[in-house]
């Protein structure tokens, strides 16, 4: 099943943007309650793939996403992102790589409440550049315009609805056009209609920018709208197949 990944990938013949090999994760290492929650994951994701990850709660989806996102270190195995082997990298290099090649969308959007929508979108670029930049500001405004929030650019998160906040968070994940965007239950906190809107937004950016998306979701209808669906159970990938209705927008 590990090798099945490339089969369903529309970009399978190209160099993968993401590759996991023998990735294991143990929690509480060295204690009596040491538990392995990922049992040797192998996975390849091609550039521009739109991928859903499903599975019961506690199956290890978030853990896997955090490893891919370089927020956590695997106990064993290696993660390659955009050609970089990441195991040996120090904090600065991992942080920089995060800022360059990865975008994050979280369930609870997690915008910084002290900043306006426009500033929130620019944050990843500010961190990388160490300064503000007119071009970045223009790009951020363009993105907000694309998600229909241009007139809210100077509002703070508290003055926006949940759906609007999540759209701002999506813009923030895309400001630097990362080759890989990770979304952990991005619609888990939204109602059905808003969920569908947010999802189609992700799909649109996937098509426009060519970013690969890995989206963890419990919504099977939304999952079937993806190019590829991976199902996890108990720390293993048990199924890796094409979505049933990838045309869903």
């Amino acid at each position: 099943m590990a090798e099945a990944s490339t089969g369903a990938s529309p970009a399978g013949q190209r160099e993968p943007i993401l590759r996991l090999q023998g990735v294991r994760k143990c929690y509480n290492v060295g204690t009596p309650v040491e538990t392995e929650v990922l049992h040797g994951i192998d996975l390849e994701v091609g550039p521009g793939e739109f991928l859903a990850m499903v599975g019961p709660s506690g199956s290890g989806k978030s853990t896997l996403l955090n490893l891919i996102g370089l927020l956590d270190q695997p106990t064993a195995g290696e993660v390659w992102i955009a050609g970089h082997a990441t195991r040996q990298l120090d904090d600065v290099a991992r942080s920089r790589l995060r800022g360059q090649v990865l975008g994050f969308v979280f369930q609870f959007h997690h915008l910084l409440t002290a900043f306006t929508a426009l500033d929130n979108v620019q944050l990843p670029r500010w961190a990388a550049l160490g300064r503000e930049d007119e071009e970045v500001a223009a790009q951020a405004l363009e993105l907000l315009d694309a998600v229909g929030l241009k007139q809210y650019a100077h509002r703070r998160p508290k003055e926006l609805s949940g759906g609007q906040q999540q759209r701002v968070a999506i813009c923030r994940a895309l400001i630097h056009r990362p080759p890989v965007v990770l979304a952990d239950e991005p619609t888990g906190n939204l109602d059905t209609e808003t969920s569908a809107q947010a999802f189609s937004l992700l799909r649109r950016f996937n098509r426009e920018f060519g970013c690969a998306f890995i989206i963890v979701t419990h919504d099977l209808d939304l999952a079937e709208g993806c190019d590829r669906v991976i199902e996890m159970v108990d720390g293993r990938i048990v199924q890796d197949r094409a979505g049933h209705a990838p045309s869903l927008e």
């Binding site: 996102g69 927020l71 904090d91 600065v92 942080s95 920089r96 995060r98 800022g99 360059q100 990865l102 994050f104 979280f106 997690h110 910084l112 409440t113 944050l123 990843p124 961190a127 990388a128 923030r172």
Partner: peptide, 13 residues
């Protein structure tokens, strides 16, 4: 949480 977000967005420690 905001510190975590900043780290995810590429801020170094």
């Amino acid at each position: 949480r905001e510190i975590g977000i900043l780290r995810a967005m590429g801020s170094t420690s």
